[in-house]
């Protein structure tokens, strides 16, 4: 086969696409594994936890995130596209008012932020939000 520039490009793209397909489930499972470890594989409900994140983050270095889960004893945040998925765990003490917290996190690329709350009755709730991380111009 004669290798033209176009063919090399095509091969290159194919390889990347393959790597992408192979790569994604691996990343996702890191987060899934971490969540399974937390919940012991229990079913997770939805609706009693609210995760607030920007749809598009101007800079992945500082992304404002808020979580709110009335009746939660703890909330853990994960970012499924980061090299290490765990972000933070908030444990609420006896003098905590609403079971809510806000912080600023790092996202390496466009990905899902997942919040898992452990409720007072031992059940789990989860919510996720896709955050697009833009590659800045001179600002980025």
């Amino acid at each position: 086969m004669e290798l033209t520039r176009r063919k090399i490009l095509a091969i290159g793209t194919g390889t990347f696409a393959f790597a992408g397909v192979m790569g994604l489930p691996a990343f996702a499972s890191l987060t899934d594994d971490a969540i399974a470890e937390m919940t012991g594989g229990a079913e997770m409900g939805e609706g009693a936890i609210t995760l607030t994140a920007p749809e598009i983050a101007e800079n992945g270095n500082t992304v404002p995130i808020s979580v709110d889960a009335p009746g939660a004893v703890a909330i853990t945040l994960f970012a499924d596209g980061n090299p290490v998925p765990a972000v933070a765990t908030f444990k609420f003490g006896p003098l905590s008012a609403s079971r809510s917290a806000s912080t600023r996190i790092r996202l390496a690329k466009t990905q899902n932020v997942v919040a898992v709350a452990q409720m007072e009755d031992g059940s789990f709730q989860h919510a996720s939000a896709n955050v697009k991380v833009t590659i800045g111009g001179c600002g980025g």
């Binding site: 800079n59 270095n61 500082t62 800045g136 111009g137 600002g139």
Partner: peptide
Amino acid sequence: TMIRADHLSQGQINGFPTYRLKNA
């Protein structure tokens, strides 16, 4: 206008020194 995914500003300096998210 956009420069990649960012808006170009007028390059005004009335907010300096400025905290940039880029380097915190």
